Computed example of a mutant assay.
Amino acid sequence: MRLNLRQIEVFRAIMQTGSISRAAGLLNVSQPAVSRLLSYTEQRLGLKLFERIKGRLYPTPEAKRLFVEVNLVYQGVQRVNEVAEDLIEHRMGHLRLACVPSLGQGLLPHAIARFLAKYPDVRVSLFTMRPHVLINALLTQQADLALVFLTDPHPSIEATQIYGNRLVAALPANHPLTARNVVSLEDLAAEKFIGYSHDTQIGQFMRQLFADAGLTIRPAVEVQQVDIACAMVQTGIGVALIDEITPLAPVWTRVVVRPVENAVDTPVNLLRATFEPMSRIGQAFIDVLQDMKKDWSSLRSPTF
């Protein structure tokens, strides 16, 4: 390599100031150090860069041509520094989030709105996926962070609980059980019930929940997602067990939720790949999620 960055810096300073002494002052080094480096640079290049005429330095045509390219290098370095500053201040970047569909209608819109209010220049992509697809998206670096509940542990995925997220009863707006302050699993098992298919984690969880209570349910309809269960409830088909975050979405205007006796949590977990370092904007989004916990009561359903 004929020129290193220090040689380029000294050459540029001399071209800008027109003298070795002023270049030394600009770089905050001694004048002899600049002279020695200039001499070494000319020797390495095999080019005469400056002529001394009556005590003044004059750049040769070769130096003027080289200066054009040197300025391009400095513009590139300046751009690198600007990008670094933008990343530090969260003025640019791309945050890729994944979640199960129900969280994409309630929790995530709240969180993303707060995040973009603080960092309006960051681009956010949100992917809604079933849990097993979501895990693969993290492992293949298609997503930076993911939000789920009822996820199975994975050796390469780190899970952190963000919210407690209790199970609640979802009822059609005109259903008799809406007159109750609290409903039981027995109440729900006696109704036309909307359940979840056997091949889903929530379906397996719900069946075990009823079995532990000594109850058997025979769903009138089975779905795979909590938000679809809400849609079924809204049409009056029956009742369902859902998590308390899902009905935060404004689309469920004819769904009434009630606490369930001895309710259990289906915690919302934040997932990330353990082998991937956390980006600054990723950590900033996590901070927003944590801040939302402080005023979680303002987001939860008014029936609570």
Score class of each variant (00 low, 15 high):
Gln225Tyr: 15
Asp227Trp: 14
Asp227Asn: 15
Asp227Val: 12
Asp227Gly: 11
Ile228Gly: 07
Ile228Tyr: 06
Ile228Trp: 13
Ile228Cys: 11
Ala229Lys: 13
Ala229Ile: 13
Cys230Thr: 07
Cys230Gln: 13
Cys230Leu: 15
Ala231Cys: 14
Ala231His: 10
Ala231Phe: 12
Ala231Gly: 13
Met232Asp: 01
Met232Glu: 11
Met232Cys: 15
Val233Ser: 07
Val233His: 05
Val233Cys: 08
Val233Arg: 06
Val233Pro: 07
Val233Thr: 09
Gln234Ala: 14
Gln234Ser: 10
Gln234Lys: 12
Thr235Val: 15
Thr235Cys: 10
Thr235Ile: 14
Thr235Glu: 13
Gly236Thr: 05
Gly236Leu: 07
Gly236Lys: 07
Ile237Arg: 07
Ile237Gln: 04
Ile237Ala: 12
Gly238Met: 09
Gly238His: 12
Gly238Tyr: 14
Gly238Gln: 10
Val239Phe: 09
Val239Pro: 09
Val239Thr: 03
Val239Ile: 10
Ala240Gln: 11
Ala240Val: 10
Ala240Asp: 05
Ala240Phe: 11
Ala240Tyr: 06
Leu241Trp: 10
Leu241Thr: 11
Leu241Phe: 12
Ile242Trp: 04
Ile242Asn: 02
Asp243Val: 09
Asp243His: 11
Glu244Met: 05
Glu244Arg: 01
Glu244Gly: 02
Glu244His: 03
Ile245Gln: 01
Ile245Met: 10
Thr246Asp: 05
Thr246Lys: 04
Pro247Ala: 01
Pro247Trp: 00
Pro247Val: 00
Pro247Lys: 00
Pro247Asn: 01
Pro247Phe: 02
Pro247Met: 04
Leu248Glu: 00
Leu248Gln: 03
Leu248Lys: 01
Ala249Phe: 03
Ala249Tyr: 04
Ala249Val: 10
Ala249Asp: 01
Ala249Ser: 12
Pro250Trp: 01
Val251Trp: 07
Val251Arg: 08
Trp252Thr: 02
Trp252Met: 03
Trp252His: 04
Thr253Ser: 06
Thr253Gln: 04
Thr253Ala: 10
Arg254Ser: 07
Val255Glu: 03
Val255Cys: 12
Val255Asp: 03
Val255Asn: 04
Val256Thr: 10
Val257Tyr: 05
Val257His: 02
Val257Cys: 09
Val257Gln: 02
Arg258Lys: 14
Arg258Val: 06
Arg258Phe: 12
Arg258Gln: 05
